[in-house]
Amino acid sequence: MDNTKCIAALFDFDGVVMDTETQYSLFWNKIGKQYFPQIEEFGRIIKGQTLVNIYAKYFAGMEKEQQDITARLNQFEKDMAYEYIPGVVDFMKDLRAHGVKMAIVTSSNDLKMANVYKAHPELKELVDRILTAEMFTRSKPAPDCFLLGAEVFGTVPQNCVVFEDSFHGLEAGNAAGMAVVGLCTTNPKEAIADKCKLVIPDFTAFSFEKMKALLA
């Protein structure tokens, strides 16, 4: 750890701050069955990627289909339930009390996050920055989004802790050279244990001191 730089906590959003991943899996698995019936669990395959990347990889040249999916997704996100992962608000307040910089680093776009702010206007006050899909070109598993998180706080990767739940997100955190904490909210503990320093079910038993120990 570089003691001349601040410590930063970088949180993925879905499945880390809000318990939304199960809802998204239902939506994208339905899309998968419609367009790619040969692919099992399409929702799991695309987790952590921006909509732009999903379209580029799976729906290239399919403009009408992209428009249809976007319209369905926008409506779906308006109707979604946004509930905090247990303990995350208290954990963020603990980090704030210890001077830790915090950012939500998400593949979600500004339109989706506007729905979140309507449901939880306090979210913007809990963290210092919210970095969305519009702010980086390559989505997870590329490390760009987390490296941007370090950059906006003027710190270095070795001072950053990433909180992630998806395979792409965990890979991105590791590629960024940061300490990675995996939440087994989306994937089983056994499936992600070798991809992070620590696995937790939620934030109820987690603290600033436990996070700081990962940077020693």
Rank of each mutant, 00 (worst) to 15 (best):
M1I: 08
M1G: 06
N3E: 14
N3W: 07
I7V: 15
F11P: 05
F11V: 03
D14N: 13
G15T: 10
T22F: 10
Y24T: 01
S25A: 13
S25V: 11
K30S: 15
I31K: 03
I31A: 05
K33I: 07
Q34D: 11
Y35H: 15
F36A: 00
G43V: 08
I45K: 14
I46S: 02
G48T: 12
T50F: 02
Y55H: 10
Y55I: 00
Y55G: 00
A56L: 01
K57Q: 15
K57E: 15
G61N: 05
E63P: 00
Q67F: 04
D68T: 14
T70P: 00
A71H: 08
A71L: 11
A71I: 05
Q75K: 14
F76A: 02
K78F: 11
M80N: 12
M80T: 06
E83S: 14
I85P: 04
D90K: 15
K93G: 04
A97R: 01
H98M: 06
M102W: 03
V105A: 01
S107N: 05
S107M: 03
S108E: 00
L111V: 14
L111P: 00
A114D: 09
A114V: 02
Y117W: 05
K118Y: 05
P121Y: 05
P121M: 06
L123T: 09
K124V: 11
L126V: 07
D128N: 12
D128M: 02
R129G: 08
L131I: 15
L131T: 10
L131E: 05
T132H: 07
E134H: 10
F136L: 04
R138P: 00
C145I: 13
F146S: 00
F146R: 01
G149A: 06
A150M: 10
V152Q: 05
V152Y: 11
P157V: 01
V161L: 13
V161C: 12
F163L: 07
E164I: 04
D165M: 11
F167S: 02
G169S: 08
G169L: 09
E171L: 03
E171K: 12
A175M: 10
A175P: 06
A176I: 07
M178Y: 03
M178F: 04
G182I: 03
C184M: 11
N187K: 14
K189M: 14
K189F: 13
D194S: 15
K197Y: 09
L198A: 06
V199K: 10
V199R: 11
I200N: 06
F203R: 03
T204G: 05
S207N: 08
S207E: 07
F208C: 09
E209N: 05
K210Q: 15
K212L: 13
A213C: 08
